[in-house]
């Protein structure tokens, strides 16, 4: 397979970046996100979070549990500061 394939579109993180990070650090989805920026971009991980979880499950062996690996945090949509302060 092509290892330079992009997994996280927003931050342009490749399969290789994520796979090697999990392999080297034996880390969770959350730590992988912090280390690689996968899932940290504009879409909030809506597109790539399942891929990160899958790679972590495969390489680190963290099985799919009932807790969501990458916790959802507000805001779930990017918003300008003016909206946060009230229009």
């Amino acid at each position: 397979m092509r290892e330079d394939m992009i997994i996280c579109r927003c931050e342009e993180v490749t399969y290789k970046d994520i796979y090697q990070t999990v392999e080297h650090h034996q880390c969770s989805s959350r730590e992988t996100k912090l280390r690689t920026r996968a899932g940290m971009g504009y879409c909030g991980g809506r597109t790539c979070r399942t891929f990160v979880d899958q790679i972590v499950a495969e390489v680190y062996g963290e099985p799919s549990g009932d807790a969501i690996p990458l916790k959802y945090r507000p805001p779930v949509r990017p918003i300008p500061f003016k909206t946060m302060g009230g229009k």
Partner: peptide
């Protein structure tokens, strides 16, 4: 990409 507001690619 998604056309329904989830992916923000079309911003």
């Amino acid at each position: 990409y998604c056309n329904i507001g989830h992916c923000f690619e079309c911003r």
